[in-house]
Design a protein around this nucleic acid. Structure first.
Lengths: 157, 157
DNA sequence: TATTGTTATACTCTATAACTATA
DNA sequence: TATAGTTATAGAGTATAACAATA
């Protein structure tokens, strides 16, 4: 237990001999965010998807109204029409009428849609080896820290 | 020392009672990356900049050739022309000839460019309070971990 | 009246290909 | 020949404003 914490500390000490400032930490978070998005987009592109299309598909666990997708993507609802149009044209999602509100259209992933995003996810996991060195306790600590960072960035999330 | 490590661990325990899987960690890294970019873009927009424009300006510490900017932004060189055009039209950057290679144009931030990006950075720091709770040792550990994550995402970086 | 989804429009970012001027 | 920067072009994402259908 103490050993895993010491290891956690050693991981930090390895590359940052002096204590980083808040500005340096924010810069690194930005670099990590950029790297994450670029890798995800590149992986998506290998499967014929744009980054945004893959992101929508990845969040589509069940039927979701267009409006909900706009909220998830943090963009105007009018944009979702085009994004879903292109995914639907490729047979990766379907639009279904909502039984309880005829204004609403629910978007659902097709089998091919599920399969495609599954491959993108698998590819991401395969190329991310940095996390494999962490044991269960270290992952827990890291998860909590990242969660706090994210909540700090988006208080409402 | 041990106390700060325990605190680090407690921070993790707080919101993740069970050990997260690699998939869950990657999903959280993605969410953090998205949140980071959206906050940065929103801050940039408040100062009349797009996210990419602000990113270019933020990395422009000294004179940089167009080619170097393309490498930094991880995009084709042809895109940089337009991005710099728009920044230059607003008086935030200048193009200067390179003395040693007449093919090269070096981009430099104007005083107004520096001032604008300084305000964006200040705004980001002000809204990111999550890091303030960490002491020097915790920041060091976190920095090292984030660095490892980033390097795992982009082995070449 | 308010909300959902869509259309029309304009702008930015993106890659590709072709061009020029230099090296 | 190769490289730096640009132009032209087409596609995708973005916000704004207006609209029809429904609540």
């Amino acid at each position: 237990m103490i050993e895993s914490l010491n290891r956690l500390r050693r991981l930090g000490r390895m590359t940052a001999p002096t204590s980083p400032t808040k500005a340096q930490l924010l810069e690194l978070v930005a670099a990590l965010g950029t790297a994450q998005w670029q890798d995800f987009s590149a992986s998506a592109a290998r499967h014929g998807l744009t980054g945004v299309q893959a992101k929508l598909l990845a969040h589509l666990k069940g039927p979701m109204p267009m409006r909900g997708l706009a909220t998830m993507l943090v963009c105007d609802a009018s944009n979702v029409t085009g994004i879903v149009d292109r995914l639907e044209a490729r047979g990766l999602v379907r639009r279904e009428p909502d039984p309880s509100d005829r204004r609403v259209k629910n978007v659902v992933a097709t089998d091919e849609g599920h399969e495609t995003i599954r491959r993108v996810r698998a590819e991401m996991q395969a190329t991310h080896t940095a996390l494999d060195a962490l044991d269960a306790e270290e992952r827990t600590a890291l998860y909590g820290l990242l969660e706090r960072l994210r909540d700090g960035l988006r208080p409402g999330a």
